[in-house]
Design a protein around this nucleic acid. Structure first.
Lengths: 155, 155
DNA sequence: GGTGAAAATTGGGAATT
DNA sequence: AATTCCCAATTTTCACC
């Protein structure tokens, strides 16, 4: 299997549409059309094409962690024991605390962003992880940048 | 200033609505209503209220990094030099490479998720950071969990 | 582009607590 | 009394040709 073109060419109009949809995914095609100078069907066609190409992979409501009972956030790194990485990767999807999880290079294998109710919840969660490896926990003090939108980068 | 209720009570119907909107933020109120057993205005009213309360903080199109020219992702931690944390916090919003940035406890002050075109881009970006502190870089090998939806947690 | 179908929105009223 | 829902009508948006 060969990837011919991964970096799809996106013109200035599509970047404008992407900007608007990243700011408000529920914006109507009519409104978007007014702002970028296209008719609603033209916007719909462009959006559809970007969905099909995979440029847009979905639309998500952003739900506040703190308003839904998760007042504590932490970064946890995991250095997996021999033979324990695979089992961890297979189970991590079922942990509702885990919002993001990446495999990384370096001394640790895994880095996670987790949300928790309180420090007791954190303690219980770390207890669940110790069977897979050594963990290191950093409490998040504040969000400086949260899922910043992707913008066109000058080349 | 006193926070009386941060953890808003969310009933089972609103959790269903939140689930659907996290899966597809562009789902119509009519469709949501059919799935949860409400009329469109009732859904709209509940969603509006959750927006006002801050339970829903927005709706975002998810744009693929790899399809927009960012083939490389990395986690970078920063241990800021004396007096350099504040200036960094004020400028980090302008770095388009930075998708997420958190202040954390521990040996490092800052942890970031960044997206990059290639290793040359990474090198240039790290060069921009060295004036603020010591950095440590972990290349992301794969996404195991990506912005998992928030679900109701059993108490 | 233009037309018919579907959805959003608004206002008002009824039922539940 | 406050909240939440439904119904009906208007406006807007969507989708198909």
């Amino acid at each position: 299997m060969i990837h011919f073109i991964l970096n799809t060419k996106i013109d200035v109009l599509n970047w404008k549409i992407l900007k608007l949809l990243q700011e408000n995914a529920r914006e109507s095609f009519a409104n978007i059309g007014r702002k970028v100078g296209l008719t609603p069907p033209a916007v719909a066609e462009r959006v559809k094409k970007m969905e099909d190409l995979g440029v847009i992979s979905g639309y998500k409501a952003v739900v506040s962690h703190s308003h839904t009972g998760y007042q504590l956030k932490a970064i946890i790194t995991l250095r997996a024991f021999m033979g324990k990485l695979r089992p961890f990767l297979e189970i991590v999807n079922t942990y509702e605390e885990v919002v993001n999880c990446y495999r990384i290079t370096g001394n640790e294998n895994i880095i996670m962003l987790v949300v928790l109710k309180d420090q007791f919840h954190l303690e219980k969660f770390i207890d669940k992880l110790i069977q897979y490896g050594e963990t290191r926990t950093h409490i998040i003090l504040s969000d400086v940048v949260s899922n910043a939108p992707i913008k066109k980068r000058e080349v």
